[in-house]
Write a protein that binds this DNA or RNA. Structure first.
Length: 492
RNA sequence: GUCCCCAUCGUCUAGUCAGGUCCAGGACACCGGCCUUUCACGCCGGCAACACCGGUUCAAAUCCGGUUGGGGACGCCA
């Protein structure tokens, strides 16, 4: 058996969005599972809309996700000659013809058909033009496109889809489609097939929105005398209003880049993405890279479309809650040594990284991450909610300030006093700091919670967090004393 | 309008091909409880679905037909 060859062919007309990422992921998984190759091919034949920024964005997105490829990136425009030759061949073999209908005429006919609620396909005006007529029109300089001549056959053409099963369509339903523009540039339907033939693609995994293209391309494979690859059409991802997700309508929320910037762990995002339209057949939801490659299969891809369940302007979830929960799962269960690099990157970006965290304070760094990670949602939370563990410029949040500090004016003096006590204490241990804090509460004649929560507010700026005395140990005596002494400033 | 695909909790889904073990299981979200000086984590519990109508069958979420609903395609975009 020959090796499987897959491809991911994005068009560089925008950033990589979750639909594209999921397609790339499925192709990648199948290639890796079967020991095959994944080819990255940039389909840039739409020169009007293609941009180099998009290419970079797509590559960057794939790299971030960890989706690697074995060949490419190839650029479709580098093979224009080949595409034109293929069109020429089709013309010669009688599988294609020149069409002189103007855009305006076509547009009018289409609109008229739509208005009359009739079928909107090409009417075949130029399908059987006499050779002389063609010559005359060419001589007159009338621009022409090249259309594929769909064979006049009865019956149906079809293929066995790995996801959907047998898919068929009547020949009579297929319009003569354009394969070369009037400016001589070949179009997607043709280029895509020519490239897939050249790249010896064995499996085409793409969205269900390509189903009608597949039928047309089947004809192209036949006319070009090439073997047809295996097709697998995956379900589309819709928004919660059941509209196809698109860059244009949904903006950055559907961009892979958005998740990178918002502190997702790349693998967690892949794990979320793969579950949108595929399941292993049991209750399992978390997979390591190797486990997913092992478990993944085309046959278990769902037939029905799934919904990317984000609510715009949801105060609680900035994207699909399921995606966040999967990220949280990885955040709190992955080995600290694997989490650390992600946090390091984020801290570095905010100029909070200290080289010692990777050297003599490495253990401290890891212990701290262990202490605080259970209540975080993303990597970004380490520099926002968790800022007080790495810097002094953390923000004192409004809510705890009012509720746990300003409400008890006595704290203005109690906390600095406790700071002195801590400074003078023989041991700055878990037990001792707690004992002294409780003693402080006793002397002030308040509940220990008042002292503890007040301290939490001053020392971390947060309403909630890990056990107070664990925090104290993590921060260290000097920092704690310094911060507690500044308590009066917060009453100003 | 034509063609194609799809249809289980709010969402992601298991179960459908080989009908009975499914008055439908898991996860997220939500609600309640336990734990806890706080908040999370964790644990326990709860809410919540087979779109509808017929047919086949001793038996249908599962097979068949229809209806409805949703989506996609119909471009000199990819």
């Amino acid at each position: 058996m020959t090796e499987s060859r897959l491809r991911f062919p994005p068009s560089p007309t925008g950033y990589l969005h979750i639909g594209g990422a999921r397609t790339a992921l499925y192709n990648w998984l199948y290639a890796r599972k079967t020991g095959g190759k994944l080819i990255l091919r940039i389909e840039d034949t739409d020169t009007e809309r293609s941009t180099t920024d998009s290419i970079e964005g797509i590559l960057d997105g794939l790299n971030w996700l960890g989706i690697d490829w074995d060949e490419g990136p190839y650029f479709q425009t580098d093979f224009s000659e080949e595409h034109r030759n293929a069109a020429e061949t089709l013309l010669k073999t009688g599988n294609a013809y020149k069409c002189f209908c103007s855009r305006e005429t076509l547009e009018q006919k289409r609109e008229a058909a739509l208005a009359a609620k009739e079928s909107v396909g090409y009417d075949g005006t130029c399908r059987s033009l006499a050779p002389e007529t063609v010559q005359q029109k060419e001589a007159a300089g009338i621009p022409a496109v090249i259309r594929f001549k769909v064979p006049e056959r009865s019956g149906k053409i079809g293929y066995d889809d790995k996801v959907l099963g047998r898919i068929e369509s009547s020949y009579s339903e297929i319009d003569d489609f354009v394969i070369v523009r009037s400016d001589g540039n070949p179009l997607y339907l043709l280029c895509n097939v020519v490239d897939d033939i050249r790249d010896r693609i064995s499996h085409v995994i793409r969205g269900q929105d390509h189903m009608t293209n597949t039928i047309k391309q089947l004809l192209l494979y036949e006319a070009l005398g090439a073997p047809v690859p295996v097709f697998a059409h995956m379900p589309l991802t819709l928004d919660n209003k059941k509209a196809k997700i698109s860059k244009r309508n949904h903006g950055e929320i559907v961009a892979v880049q958005f998740y990178k910037e918002h502190g997702f762990i790349p693998w967690a995002f892949n794990n979320y993405l793969v579950l949108l339209g595929w399941s292993p057949g049991n209750d399992r939801e978390f997979f390591s890279r190797e486990e997913l490659i092992e478990t993944f299969s085309l046959e278990r891809i769902n037939r029905s479309s799934s919904i990317f369940n984000y609510r715009k302007d949801d105060p609680k979830f900035f994207t699909d809650p399921k995606a966040i929960s999967i990220n949280e799962h990885y955040l709190r269960s992955m080995p600290i040594s694997e989490l650390a690099p992600f946090v390091k990157e984020r801290l570095s970006k905010e100029a909070l990284w200290d080289e010692s965290y990777g050297q003599e304070r490495r253990q401290w760094f890891h212990d701290t991450l262990e202490l605080i990670r259970s209540r975080f949602h993303t990597i970004n939370d380490f520099t926002s909610l968790g800022r007080a563990y790495f810097a002094d410029d953390y923000e004192i949040e409004e809510k705890p300030l009012k509720k746990n500090l300003l409400k008890y004016p006595g704290l203005k003096t109690w906390l600095p006093e406790l700071a002195e006590t801590y400074k003078a204490a023989e041991h700055f241990s878990l037990e001792e700091t707690e004992r002294l804090a409780r003693k402080c509460a006793e002397e002030a004649d308040v509940k220990p919670g008042v002292i503890i929560n007040g301290m939490r507010t001053v020392v971390t700026g947060q309403l909630a967090g890990p056990s107070m005395f664990d925090i104290l140990m993590t921060l260290g005596r000097d920092t704690v004393v310094r911060r507690l002494k500044k308590t009066p400033e917060l009453f100003a």
